[in-house]
Simulated scan of single mutants.
Amino acid sequence: MKIESVRVISREKVEQPVYRYVKPTDYYKSILGEVSPTEAAMINEVCTLEMRAGDYAAYYNTTSDVADFAVDLSKKLNGLDVSEINMAWDMLYRLSLPLGRAGVMMHALSAINILMYDLYSRYLGVPAYRIMGGPTRKKIRAYASHLHPTAIPELQEEARKYVSEGYKTMKMRFISGPSDINGIDKNIELVRSIRDAVGYDVELAGDAWMSWNYSFALKMVKKLEKYDMAWVEEPFMPDDFESMKMLALKTDIPISEGEHHYHIYDFKRLLDAGIRILQPDAVWTGGITPMKKIAALAETYGAIIVPHTGNVYNLHCIISEPESVTPVAEFLTKYREWMEQDMEGIPFPVKGYIELSENPGFGIEYKKSN
Rank of each mutant, 00 (worst) to 15 (best):
L73Y: 14
M116T: 03
L80E: 11
M87P: 01
L95A: 11
A108V: 13
M87I: 14
S83T: 10
A111Q: 09
Y93H: 08
L92V: 15
L97A: 06
A70W: 10
K75F: 11
Y117T: 01
S74E: 04
D90E: 15
M116F: 02
M105K: 01
S83L: 02
S110H: 12
V104N: 13
M106H: 06
G103K: 14
L73K: 11
L99S: 04
L99Q: 11
R101Q: 15
M106F: 03
L92C: 00
M87G: 09
G79D: 09
S110V: 02
A88P: 07
L99Y: 09
M106T: 15
G103T: 14
K75R: 15
M91R: 04
H107Q: 11
S74M: 04
L119R: 06
S110I: 13
S74A: 15
I112T: 10
I85N: 00
I85P: 01
K76Q: 03
E84W: 00
K75C: 03
A108S: 11
R101V: 14
V66M: 05
G103F: 05
N78P: 01
A67N: 12
Y120S: 08
V104M: 07
A70D: 03
L99V: 00
G79L: 09
D72K: 15
V104K: 06
A108M: 10
D118V: 02
G100M: 01
N78G: 04
N113M: 01
R122E: 02
F69K: 13
L80F: 11
F69M: 09
V104A: 03
G100E: 13
E84V: 13
M91L: 15
R101H: 12
P98Y: 04
L73S: 00
L92E: 12
S96Y: 02
L95N: 08
D81Y: 07
E84N: 11
V82E: 01
S83K: 11
M105W: 14
L115Y: 06
K75V: 01
R122F: 02
V71F: 08
G100P: 13
Y120A: 06
Y120L: 02
L73E: 09
I112L: 05
I112M: 11
S96E: 04
I112H: 01
S110M: 04
A108D: 10
V71E: 05
A67W: 12
L95W: 13
P98D: 09
P98H: 10
L73A: 04
G79N: 03
L95S: 08
Y120V: 05
I114M: 07
S74C: 12
I114N: 05
L73H: 01
R122D: 01
I85A: 00
A67G: 13
D72H: 08
A102H: 13
D81C: 05
Y120N: 09
L80M: 15
A111V: 15
D72Q: 03
G100W: 07
N78L: 11
Y93A: 08
D81E: 10
M116S: 04
Y120E: 05
N86L: 10
S96I: 13
W89N: 06
W89V: 14
